[in-house]
Design a protein around this nucleic acid. Structure first.
Lengths: 222, 222
DNA sequence: TTTGGTTTTACGGTTTACCGTAACATCCTG
DNA sequence: CAGGATGTTACGGTAAACCGTAAAACCAAA
């Protein structure tokens, strides 16, 4: 079994349930529980540098925001940060999120070895997932597979997602263009960004940027 | 302490956390856990007739629906059914639901002696609540009181919500203006709509309409 | 190297959003 | 009624989004 697992979950009731299961039922010697993604990222980074890395990350997706100013506001942000840094830690996502595009985007990531829907048997499913992952397998319940299969065949790349993200964060198309230029992301011209957004508007049936971002949020793309 | 508590919670991870807390920390001898409101109602009714009634009901509000056909689809239905029957069992509601009208409606009910927001310290709060309720008191956290008693400095009216809805549906400010004119909704001028949107941008910390709608979706306003 | 097709970029024009300022209307209070 | 406070509408200028078209750059195969 895993020796050291990090659980990221804001609701203490859920967090206790999960860590209890890991400790009592699966006899994991070290379970670390944190309620913030920022904190989780620091722990992962820290323990990696100290040569005592986590064997597994179990994370929720949506987190309540309180007084604290946060850099990583969701489990998705955390996962993307880990991928960006090239960390090889396996990740099990445990969420109530059922939007298929969101699930598809996440399960496409190599680190994400399992996606568990919080539900009436979520804890049982999570236990099964951990048992499979420790053997080097992935574990995706039937419901997750059907949800992702049914996803639209339009291929929306990470470029499109980042475009929508920047838009939803209040950047103008022009600002995104200059940002992409400085970051060396291509295409970066305003014209190309416009064209790409037009394609997205077509796919997501939106008539302007506002509706585009709204629809993207509705289907869990961002 | 209470002798017999019924916990109604569909997510097993949360349910385990709560019943564990009640049994281990508060030494409640009998904790019954159920995942369906219908089942909960039958148990309450049954044990009352058998002269072994529950001392307390702890219930969630929103429940996932699966294959089972349900008569009571939410915690609210359950509470209202109990009130309708005149059962005197005290009720603690434990939910993520933060909408003030919903909270206000529920906390006005006599049976509802506490409302706990599931959050980072939800379990701790629930423990406090049970300890107060057993003494015959009610327990409403500060946040609940502020949510019900006083509305925020800037009250977001249904007008604002409809404005945001129309925006998210792809209408331009101009189109919304003409729509409001035909519908007789006031204010309807483009200028007023702009002004109202500016206020909303201020409140929701958005720099343009795109971010405004994105943020409104994030906090569940639309 | 040439060719054809795709992607990226450039540009001009129209509409809409954005942001002041100010006039007009309404309501309440002294 | 006068006065102020608030709410609504009007207008003008700048920035950005929107929507064509077309040139330039890129790439793979002939």
């Amino acid at each position: 079994m895993f020796k050291k697992i990090l659980v990221v979950e804001d609701l203490d009731s859920v967090g206790h349930g999960i860590s209890m299961m890991l400790e009592k039922e699966l006899a994991v010697p070290e379970v670390v529980l944190t309620k913030y993604c920022d904190e989780a990222y620091l722990k992962i980074q820290n323990d990696l540098q100290n040569n005592t890395p986590f064997d597994l990350l179990i994370t929720d997706l949506s987190f309540k925001h309180d007084h604290r100013p946060l850099r990583l506001k969701s489990g998705r942000d955390l996962v993307e940060k880990i991928v960006e840094k090239g960390y090889k830690i396996p990740i099990i996502i445990c969420s109530v999120e059922e939007k298929n595009t969101m699930i598809k985007n996440l399960t496409d990531i190599d680190n994400v070895v399992s996606y568990i829907l919080k539900g009436r048997d979520g804890l049982k499913e999570l236990k099964k997932a951990v048992c499979e992952v420790v053997k080097g397998n992935t574990y995706f319940p039937e419901k997750i597979i059907t949800l992702t299969k049914r996803s639209p065949s339009f291929e929306i790349e990470s470029y499109d997602v980042s475009l929508l993200r920047h838009l939803s964060n209040g950047l103008s198309q022009n600002q995104i263009a200059t940002l992409f230029i400085t970051k060396g992301i291509s295409p970066s011209s305003l014209s190309s960004i416009e064209k790409r957004l037009n394609k997205l508007k077509d796919v997501l049936k939106a008539s302007n940027n506002v509706q585009l971002v709204a629809n993207a949020k509705d289907i869990g793309l961002i």
